[in-house]
């Protein structure tokens, strides 16, 4: 059984339909990337999983439906969400940003904090710094760290490399890879940077105008000349 099953999911903003019959499965321990241009529906898919958009169809985590549940229950069920780094609490310290994520896993705060600071040592060094004064890369680490404080079974990361220097997103890719290898945490990212997605993810879904156009392993998609031309530009 897959860890996360999405079945014929459609999402709506008012009368506008942003996702159309999206189905995918994510196995436990996998790293999966959703790639596509702006407006393809990647972030909407994450918002749908988090219960922040009106949807039809089904989303199941370990067989249990998440549809209709409030976001707080979805997080408590095991979905950790690292939104774009602009969604931090800008005038709070790094430590307090992380602690806001600790409500659903109150018994493991020390362990989770230690895991996050082990993954991103810079967050321990700058625990008292306001996140508004941090670099883009560090803020991205705070965003991922806050999601990890919820002790998730699956981590959703929305566009982790947007606006970052190549050196920084290599660091983030390495941290996510390490996290997956050491803890077996399942990771779902959205990306516009295809090369980043190809180096990190094992399975990739290419999205376009609210639908999944192509799915496959990173190797399969890398070798597909037509896809490379259409989506990757090389």
């Amino acid at each position: 059984m897959a860890l996360l099953d999405i079945d014929k999911l459609s999402a709506f903003y008012g009368k506008a339909q942003a996702l159309q019959d999206v189905s995918l499965s994510i196995a436990e321990g996998d790293i999966v990337a959703l790639i596509g241009t702006n407006g393809a529906g990647k972030s909407t898919l994450l918002d749908s999983i988090m219960g922040q958009v009106t949807v039809s169809g089904d989303i199941r985590l370990k067989g249990e439906s998440l549809v209709g549940k409030p976001t707080s229950k979805i997080v408590a069920a095991g979905v950790g969400y690292a939104p774009e780094r602009a969604n931090l609490f800008a005038h709070m310290s790094v430590r307090n940003n992380l602690l806001v994520g600790a409500y659903t896993a109150r018994d493991n705060i020390a362990d989770n904090l230690s895991r996050v600071e082990n993954l991103f040592p810079v967050l321990a060094e700058r625990a008292g710094q306001e996140t508004s004064t941090q670099s883009g890369g560090e803020r991205q680490m705070v965003s991922i760290g806050r999601a990890l404080m919820t002790n998730p079974s699956i981590l959703l990361v929305d566009e982790p490399t947007i606006g970052l220097a190549p050196k920084v997103f290599n660091d983030i890719a390495e941290a996510l890879r390490r996290l997956n290898a050491e803890t077996g945490l399942t990771i779902l990212i959205t990306e516009q940077n295809v090369n980043f997605a190809l180096t990190l993810a094992r399975h990739i879904h290419v999205m376009e105008t609210g639908r999944i156009r192509v799915s496959g392993t990173a190797d399969e998609l890398r070798e597909d000349a037509a896809l490379a031309e259409a989506y990757f530009g090389h």
Binding site: T71, N87, M92, V100, Y103
Partner: peptide, 23 residues
């Protein structure tokens, strides 16, 4: 307290607070 921290977080970004699992 952490409750106070969460309340302050609401003024900065309520959706992100919800996304962190808080009601």
């Amino acid at each position: 307290s952490r409750l106070g921290t969460a309340l302050s977080a609401i003024s900065m970004n309520e959706d992100a607070v919800a996304g962190s699992g808080l009601n």
